[in-house]
């Protein structure tokens, strides 16, 4: 099942890239498309941050991941590189669990 999901998702992502090079410009330059598509990643990434920080299964929780997110926000504001943002969040969670 995992493989099927992985391969279908890969095919869908490739199809979207190919569509961009293949569809007539009039479709892709439609005001609604140009206005809406860039908003999708903003909303989805924000929803991913929220759900993966504040939930376990179907329960809303506040735990060490909240502290890790606060550290990550600080790192982003300091313009730290991607790997530093991720590693400092993981290290924060690991250290707080040791306490």
């Amino acid at each position: 099942m995992m493989w099927a999901g992985v391969l279908v998702a890969c095919a869908a992502c490739y199809a979207l890239k190919l569509a961009g090079l293949s569809l007539p410009a009039s479709v892709l330059q439609d005001a609604r498309v140009q206005r809406t598509v860039p908003l999708v990643p903003v909303a989805l990434l924000a929803a991913l941050v929220a759900t993966q920080t504040f939930s376990t299964g179907h329960h809303l929780v506040v735990d060490v991941r909240t502290a890790a997110l606060i550290v990550a926000i600080g790192m982003v504001l300091l313009r730290a590189p991607f790997l530093v943002v991720v590693a400092s969040a993981a290290a924060t969670a690991a250290l707080l669990r040791l306490l």
């Binding site: 941050v49 997110l69 991607f82």
Partner: peptide, 12 residues
């Protein structure tokens, strides 16, 4: 702390 890594990646 690997469970805290994905939200940080999405944030970045």
């Amino acid at each position: 702390g690997f469970d805290a890594a994905p939200p940080a990646a999405f944030l970045a």
